[in-house]
């Protein structure tokens, strides 16, 4: 059961590529680490090797499943950006596992970890540049691709807001239309009475505008995050598509690829 698992690493068609080793903390990868490493790999034309090191004291089966699930997210992110991806699960101490992997799969150019991983432990064993992505600073506004990751309490507060503003907006409309004759009489008097329709539309635009804004938020339609991220993803994917047109035999005939 407690066997170290390496998915077709050295035999894969892309094995001649240089690699980024992404080390997750225990059984997971933080969003920041995933984004950073996938984009970096895309730009550098590297391959990603994701490593989960599970301490021997943990329940092997459960941990492995969790590691697989976590790696799946990273795998999908990588495939969206056309970055080749491998996943490795190892048991034991962090430093030893990284060193072992470094020996087996070669061409690991750099290691990316998140701040939950003890980098020193890796540094003691391996002489590969180690980058630590700070994943503790979670920005609630810009931390995700879409803003519809509100937690349920936020959503509840939003619903209350929508209901309140909606009622207020409806009240304004009801007042105007139930007294349409009076309202029209004064609003069309002209002169200084001109302020009446102007003030009314201002009031409506504040109340009804806020209602509309919150309504779209409640429905999960909100502004998307930075354009730049998507553009990078797109460009990288395009670039990789071009790279993939190379004859596949390239990797097999490369006489150095296993050295």
């Amino acid at each position: 059961m407690r066997e170290n698992r390496i998915e077709e690493l050295s035999s894969g068609p892309e094995s001649g590529r240089r690699r980024i080793l992404v080390v997750g903390s225990g059984a997971g990868f933080s969003g920041e680490v995933m984004d950073y490493s996938v984009h970096l790999a895309g730009r550098l034309n590297y391959e990603i090797v994701a490593l989960n090191v599970i301490p021997t004291a943990w329940d092997a089966k459960v941990s492995e499943q969790r590691a697989d699930a976590a790696a799946d997210a990273l795998r999908k992110k990588a495939s969206r950006n056309a970055v080749p991806f491998e996943h490795v699960v190892k048991f034991g101490s962090l430093g030893e596992c990284v060193e072992e992997l470094n020996q087996t799969i070669k061409r690991i150019e750099l290691v990316i970890t998140d701040s939950g991983v003890n980098g020193e432990e890796i540094g003691k064993e391996v002489t590969v540049p180690l980058f630590c992505v700070d994943s503790k600073t979670f920005n609630p506004q810009g931390g995700r691709d879409m803003a519809d990751h509100q937690n349920p309490t936020n959503k509840k507060a939003l619903a209350v807001k929508v209901a309140g503003l909606g009622a207020l907006s409806a009240a304004i409309y009801a007042t105007v239309f139930m007294n349409a004759d009076t309202v029209m009489h004064y609003c069309t008097k002209g002169g200084l009475y001109a302020s009446l329709p102007i003030l009314t539309v201002f009031a409506v635009s504040f109340v009804h505008g806020a209602f509309a804004s919150n309504l779209w938020s409640l429905l999960g339609i909100e502004a998307m995050k930075k354009e730049s991220l998507r553009q990078t993803e797109q460009k990288v994917a395009e670039k990789r598509k071009v790279a993939r047109k190379k004859p596949r035999a390239y990797a097999y005939v490369n006489p150095f690829h296993k050295i």
Partner: peptide
């Protein structure tokens, strides 16, 4: 409005839809 030409009912109905749309 100074000339008394604004039909506030029409304005408000259109505004009801357009504020949703513009956002």
């Amino acid at each position: 409005a100074m000339h008394g030409m604004v039909d506030i009912r029409l304005t408000l109905i259109i505004l009801g839809g357009s504020l949703l749309g513009v956002q």
